[in-house]
Every structure is written in C-alpha cells, then in structure tokens.
Design a protein around this nucleic acid. Structure first.
Lengths: 218, 218
DNA sequence: GTCTATATCTCGATAGAC
DNA sequence: GTCTATCGAGATATAGAC
C-alpha cells in the first residue's frame, strides 16, 4: 500500500543522499557528491527524483518512517517493572542512533534550519495515538509515579533528558571523541558503556526519596 | 593582543553570518542572505573577509572564544558544596545556550559535517589546563566521589549526560516545541524549568546509595 | 568604506543519443 | 535506464567609480 519496493539504484541514492544531507544540510549538500557516492551519473538523480528539493523531501520522509519502524515496540511492552522499561527504552534509543546515525543527524539538521518539514510528520506521529515509543514511555513514567515506583518528576522533562543523553553523543561525535579518549579509540565500546551510564544516573535519579521503597529500607 | 575591537559593521556581519551558518551550515549559507541580514552590500563581505571560507572560519573562531569567555568561571569557584556547584554549572550552561543559541548551533553544525575546524580550537582549550568549565566540573565530580559526597559514577559520562541535557533542547527546539506545548507557548519559562529539572534528576541520580549520607540514615 | 556593475564559476536541471 | 553534453540560474568574487 505504501511505497512499493524501491529499485537497487534507488536504494543507493537514498543512502548516499541521506549521508550528504545529514552532513551538509538541505542546501549545503551537492548533487554531484551524492551521485558519486551512489556510484551513478548525476542525471540519474533527476531521473528518479525530479529536483533536489524532491530528493530531500523523499529522503526525509523515508527517514521519519524508518525512525518509527526500526524501534522495537514489542520490547517495551514486554517490560514488567519500570526499571526494565527504562533499560529497554534507553537501549533501544541508543541502538537506533548507532544503526541509523545519519538518519538521526538529518533530523537534527532539519531542526537547525527551523524544521519546516517536521510539522506534518510529527503530526501524523501524534495521530498514531500513544503507540509511539517516546509517548508510550512518557505515559509509563506517569503511571510509575502514581504507583509510587519512582519519584514525582516532570514526565516531559525526564523524557527529554533521557532522549538528549542518548542522541547527543552521536550528533557531537567529533567533539566527544576529542574530549573523551575511550570514545575515540573504540566507539562501539563507548556506546555500550553509554547505555549503562545513562540508565545508572537516570534510574537512581528517579528512585523514591529513600522511603517506601519495595525492598528493605536498611 | 588578540583581535582589536571590531568595527560596527564588522559586528553586524559577524552576527548575521553566525545566524546563517548556524542555520544552513558552512556551504548552505548564502552570502547575499548574510549581507541582507547585516544591512549592507554584498561587496562589503568580501571587503572585510576575502572569501566565504574566511568568513566562516573567522566566525567560528570568534564563536569558540565567546564560548569560553561568556561562561562565569567565578561562579563555579564560589561554590562550597557539590550540590551548589552542580546547580551553578547547569544554570551557567543553560544560560549560555539561551543567550548564545546560534553560537551553540554553529558548533553542532560543525560537528555534523565532521568538525575539521574543531581540532585546533579544542586543543588550545585543552592546553589551557583545567581552567575550562567542563574540565573543572569533571574534576569536581571526581573529588566529590572521593569524599563520598556522591556515588561512584563515571565522571566523563556524567558530564556528557549533563551537557547533553542542557544543549539538546536548543538544538532540537522545533521538535521540542511541538512535542512539549509549554515550550512552544513560553520558551523562557520552559528554559527556567529545564534548569530545575536537570538539576533535580542528576542531583538525585548522584546521591550516595542511601547509606553513609551526611544526614541521618532513617 | 561603500556602492554599482560585471566577471567567473559552480551547481542544478534538461536535451537527446544510445 | 543510463550516459554525454550543455544550458541557464544563481552564487562567489572582483573591478572600479564615488
């Protein structure tokens, strides 16, 4: 129903364009550069996608779809405790940033230029109800507060803090690699550590104030 | 010793160029657009800065300098407890993002394109010893761990989490405003709330494990 | 220092052969 | 569907009057 399976060259173009747009933005990317990276002639770009603007919008739309599809919804539903859910959410988000780094950078780039294309896509995500991972997790925070499983915190700000912690290292990777040597020498290992560390700080940060915990108080 | 006081028009150019480069990146920004925003003729850009590349590098270098200068070092040294230091660091960082939003976005943009210009500037910051706010705060975390004031956490990851939480909302502002209505209607109020919320989660997240605290254990 | 006019060149887009 | 060749717009950069 949605888009039919794209051809091989079309896939190459998508990937090349995604990288270029993520790096240099919508206007900064060069068609020649994209064609070279895709291993095709520049004319082919205009054959598949008429204009640069069309190509950008197609890549952006495709990226937003992948952003949703790639997240493991099931894993979130299977969590029993809030701690488990928090763990899975962080792991899932960081894993997405790892495997779709350029897609995520494209979203940031679109934000930097004011995000005119974000409107409709975020809207259709909102129309999907509560079944989007961030929204689902946000609601889980509220529930956990009501049950006393965690401290009463602002769900939106907490969610924002977690997402920021997951995304930022991939956006500012050159800076992070220079200020944090382990990241520079073994990025994959750093990313795994990152999952642990974000969970560690946030989990402790949400613990009830040393009273009415589930286990023994001392 | 450094740069002599820049002329008025030169200042206008800097500000206009900063906004343009932050929004559209180094190659995406347009000289005409910068000239218009600065209220001057396009030729003047080439009179003051010979090429677009020169202008970009000048703006970037100037931005990095401001990044350091604008942070209130004294405020950090005046803190007595770690909690106070944490508060001041977060407040200072968010305040910087608020008052120098475009400068911060330019840094992100430079990171997105691979950050070739970051090297020398970050190096000269590193050469400045421990007197840079992030470095200073990182060391404070280590000290606080040794004194038992906070839990044993990874200082670098903790620092990264805090910085990410402070910066990210300003980078992804269009998205944040759409997903978090209060941010859309009153950004300044949202920013103030943000300071509180980041401190709240991180402070609790660093508390010792309900044992050997300064106050009574219960 | 500031402007107008123009040169030069890069890039997006098209035409047309195969 | 893919290529070569090229057009034309738009962008950077310069020349030169004031």
């Amino acid at each position: 129903m949605s888009a039919a399976e794209p051809s091989s060259t079309e896939q190459e173009i998508f990937e090349a364009a995604l990288v270029a747009f993520a790096q240099h933005g919508r206007t900064g990317a060069r068609m020649q550069q994209i064609a070279d990276a895709a291993g095709i002639n520049k004319s082919m770009l205009h054959y598949y996608f008429r204009t640069k603007a069309d190509l950008y919008e197609a890549v952006f739309a495709h990226t937003m779809e992948r952003f949703m599809a790639s997240f493991d919804h099931e894993a979130l539903h299977e969590a029993n405790t809030f701690a488990e859910l928090l763990r899975r959410f962080i792991d899932g988000y960081v894993a997405f940033c790892q495997s779709h780094t350029h897609a995520m950078r494209l979203l940031v780039s679109e934000n930097l230029r004011g995000g005119p294309l974000l409107g409709q896509h975020l809207q259709q995500m909102a129309d999907a109800g509560t079944d989007t991972p961030p929204r689902l997790f946000r609601d889980a925070i509220e529930t956990a507060i009501e049950t006393g499983e965690i401290r009463p915190v602002d769900p939106d700000h907490t969610l924002l803090t977690i997402i920021a912690s997951c995304i930022f290292p991939f956006v500012a990777r050159p800076t992070v690699e220079r200020m944090h040597p382990p990241a520079g020498s073994d990025w994959a290992a750093f990313v795994e550590m990152r999952k642990e560390q974000i969970f560690d700080v946030v989990y402790h940060g949400l613990q009830p104030d040393s009273v009415s915990s589930s286990s023994s108080p001392a």
